[in-house]
Design a protein around this nucleic acid. Sequence first.
DNA 1: GCCAACGTTGGC
DNA 2: GCCAACGTTGGC
Length: 238
Amino acid sequence: MSSPQRKRAKSEPADVQKVADKTSKPLKVPEEKMPTKKKAKGTAPRRKSSTKASTIEEERTGTQKNVYTYWLMKSEPESRLENGVDMKFGIEDLKGQPNQTACWDGVRNYQARNFMKDMKIGQEAFFYHSNCKEPGIAGIMKIVKEAYVDHTQFAKKDAHYDPTSQQENPKWFMVDVQFVRMTKRFISLAELKRYYQEQAATGGPLKNIALFTRSRLSVQPLTKEEYEFILSLEDVKT
DNA sequence: GCCAACGTTGGC
DNA sequence: GCCAACGTTGGC
């Protein structure tokens, strides 16, 4: 599982996080077994992803340092129970939080986590509605706190409790996000897919977009070009 | 380190 | 509700 959970209001957990920050012994954080993305069976060879240079390793893992400065984060706007907990957290829910801010907890996928660790204060992210009637981009938020320990991994009653994670060496992290605005119109997955398919064939800013090339990731990076192209769709009449 | 079995994501 | 895609686990 890995879909972000019920995000929490920004005030409640403030205490839990000292745990990992300053442990006395610098225990070697095993930069975790990043699931080395071995070439998926039967998939077309990954092509080079943009004008920016990338290392072999970056290319292999599909990550590039310092290239992505925009993000897309998925959350479910409709009720669905997981371990008895309602997963619903749409953009309206974010808007309704104190300070319109929430922590993006519940991410349980290493790639998604690592992207969150790369996030910097002030960077913008699309709020994407997933697993719902109309999947797509509903709004824009920004990073207001960089990665810190996701306390829900230690909470037995949490939908995303991780019994394998230890206090001294937490596996999972989250960021805080703040609502910025709704997009001028809802930009559906179906619409984005049409652009993607066209541009994958003939070229264009969305030709490698993670939303389709790595569709199951719940936290995805966007290049500036991808982000700006999608933003330009706001003014396209449909 | 390989890979089959299993589990999850998330569109349809 | 189905199921393709793909991440994770564990036996060997």
